[in-house]
């Protein structure tokens, strides 16, 4: 059982990375961003193109994919979401759904509909083996990157001027505006940060999971689930949510694979009964 837990934990860190941006945008802009899965796919496919087709080194491909996804998120925010968000935040749900469909079609024209997967190893150290337990070294590196990026995001939110303005906008945007904070600028930066982290998640994910444009909605839902488990408005909560989701997912699919989805969602229902705000949720504080 220990190996199932460890593999679940390793996968869970990537799940958390998938959900950080979703939680941030949901908490600050107060919108459910359906294009979130698009960012994951975009990050993954850019990495695939740079690494597998153009022969770039993997670390450079991953960083570039993350930056490109941040840029995409910024463009979407400025060109589309900002305008509708100022009129009616609820309509953003419909708008981002439409955007996701359109962008999926563009991705399919660009990359095709096939699944892509990167076959990458750490040269000289492809696997770590302890007795029967084997894990690809790249997955350990991915785990460390996910934890480190969670730490960076947490510090950025808690210890920097940017983080303070983001939190001010999250807690009370009107008061923040009265204090001279450029709300739309903060929203734009928040979306770019979401894109950077989610693009990084996609870039790492494609080394272990096949990705294709049509899968975007699946990853949006996964991100939503993890945020619900961890608790809205808490970066440590998202990390714990991701890790818990990874472990529970692996346990369910290992012991009761045929019923795994039912078990996972039953667990979620029970969790919400016991703790409606999620494991680390801020509850009423952010429910404006």
């Amino acid at each position: 059982m220990l190996d199932v837990l460890i593999y679940g934990l390793l996968r869970g860190a990537t799940f958390a990375l998938v959900a950080f941006g979703f939680s941030l945008v949901l908490g600050v802009l107060n919108i459910v961003n359906i294009t979130h899965g698009i960012f994951i796919i975009f990050g993954g496919l850019i990495t695939y193109t740079l690494f597998s087709e153009l022969g770039w080194p993997l670390p450079l491909a991953v960083v570039t994919a993350s930056l490109a996804t941040g840029a995409l998120a910024g463009v979407l925010q400025k060109a589309f979401i900002e305008r509708v968000h100022s009129a009616n935040p609820l309509m953003v749900l419909v708008q981002t759904l439409g955007l996701a469909i359109v962008i999926t079609s563009i991705f399919e024209k660009t990359w095709g509909t096939s699944e892509r997967l990167i076959n990458a190893i750490i040269p000289g150290y492809p696997i770590i083996q302890v007795g029967d337990f084997i894990v690809p070294t790249l997955e350990v590196v991915t785990f460390v990157i996910a934890l480190a990026s969670a730490g960076v995001l947490y510090l950025a939110m808690e210890r920097t001027e940017f983080g303070r303005t983001v939190r001010a906008c999250r807690d009370n945007p009107r008061s923040a505006a009265l204090l001279g904070i450029d709300i739309s600028g903060v929203y734009l930066k928040t979306m770019i940060v979401c894109g950077l982290w989610t693009g990084l998640a996609g870039a790492l994910l494609i080394t272990t999971q096949p990705l294709a444009p049509y899968m975007h909605l699946h990853w949006t839902i996964e991100a939503f689930l993890i945020v619900i488990i961890g608790g809205l408005g808490s970066m440590p909560g998202v990390l714990v949510g991701g890790l818990l989701y990874g472990i529970f997912n692996h346990l369910a699919y290992f012991y009761y694979p045929a019923f795994a989805p039912a078990l996972i969602f039953s667990g979620l229902v029970v969790l919400l009964l016991v703790r409606p705000q999620g494991v680390f949720g801020l509850g009423a504080v952010i429910r404006k």
Binding site: D3, V4, Y7, H218, Y253, F254, P257, A258, A260
Partner: peptide, 17 residues
């Protein structure tokens, strides 16, 4: 025999089994 839901995303638990 490992029976899986048709849209199973992660095959690691299956290979472990």
């Amino acid at each position: 025999d490992v029976e899986l839901p048709i849209n199973t995303q992660d095959l690691r638990p299956t290979v472990l089994r």
